[in-house]
């Protein structure tokens, strides 16, 4: 980690990342498409076999709630047209398959592995299209502007996720989670699909470039040092007030007790 931090501003860093990304795409592409089927612009188009496997996994894990044809039931919405991005976001963050019924589905360790996820995503996408899983270049932060990202984040996301993405409460027991774990792909997918209470930021309201700026801001802020000392959670003045009382005032009271504990010979006056 240190190693990366120290070198991420190196003039060659940008190129290195692009190169690495390209290699990763190539390998991923080869692994996923297998027999070299034609690819769409962003995500590899799944073959019939994969769709069939996806449908199988879906029937086992998801159909109980979403219906056998993903048409939706009383307990869960239809998935027709939500696209591969929604499935990838929901499944890779562990939200789906949903566990107990809370006010909101929370992030947990994913149940399906990556290839299974992509297969289900392919199956859902084959039903009625929808937003595709973003490619690694689409979520790459190379060349993205953190400052613009900060401005956009404050204007569009901070009211729910707090100024650095530390999370915040919403109404009716819902909350906007802390953005400390989401991968660049998941951040992109969250904006694209708007899970639960979160609005959709499609490519007209927020251009793909701006999405990358936001990803750059969110990921850079996580590792940003706190020049002033411990961060106190970066959730604003509430923790500062706690420290003022439980730290500073308490310390001073102990000091006062100590200083007055040693009494000289008492004297009287007037």
């Amino acid at each position: 980690m240190r190693w990366i931090t120290a070198r991420r501003r190196h003039p060659a860093a940008g190129y290195a990342i692009v190169l690495l990304t390209l290699v990763a795409i190539g390998l991923g592409y080869a692994a996923l498409t297998g027999a070299g089927s034609p690819a769409s612009a962003s995500a590899p188009a799944p073959g019939q076999q994969q769709i069939a496997r996806g449908q199988e996994i879906f029937a086992r894990n998801c159909a109980s709630c979403h219906g056998l044809e993903a048409q939706g039931t009383a307990v869960a919405p239809s998935l027709i047209g939500v696209g591969a991005a929604a499935v990838d976001f929901q499944v890779s963050t562990g939200r789906m398959p949903a566990a107990e019924q809370g006010p909101e589905n929370v992030r947990k360790p994913p149940v399906l592995d990556t290839s299974q996820t992509l297969e289900v995503a392919g199956y859902i996408a084959s039903l009625a299209g929808g937003p595709a899983i973003p490619s690694p270049e689409q979520v790459s932060t190379a060349g993205a502007d953190v400052a613009v990202g900060q401005e956009l984040f404050i204007a569009n996301c901070a009211q729910c996720h707090n100024f650095v993405g530390a999370g915040g409460a919403l109404t009716y027991g819902k909350f906007a989670p802390a953005l400390t774990q989401a991968t660049p792909t998941q951040i992109y997918e969250a904006m694209l699909t708007g899970p639960e209470a979160m609005p959709v930021f499609n490519d007209t309201t927020m251009t793909p470039m701006n999405k990358r700026d936001i990803i750059a801001y969110v990921t850079a802020t996580r590792t940003e040092a706190n020049p002033g000392g411990f961060s106190l959670g970066r959730i604003g003045p509430v923790t500062e007030g706690l420290v003022a009382f439980l730290g500073l005032l308490l310390f001073m009271v102990v000091a006062a007790l100590w200083i007055t504990a040693k009494q000289g010979k008492p004297r009287e006056h007037e």
Binding site: I154, A155, Q159, H161, G229, G236, V243, G247
Partner: peptide, 27 residues
């Protein structure tokens, strides 16, 4: 020295259109 207070650089400049979760005054 050890506890950061009011990290204004994280809050960003004020614009009337923006608002953050956890906006609080001092205690």
């Amino acid at each position: 020295t050890f506890a950061q207070i009011n990290p204004v650089w994280l809050y960003g400049p004020y614009t009337p259109v923006a608002m953050s979760a956890g906006s609080q005054p001092d205690f």
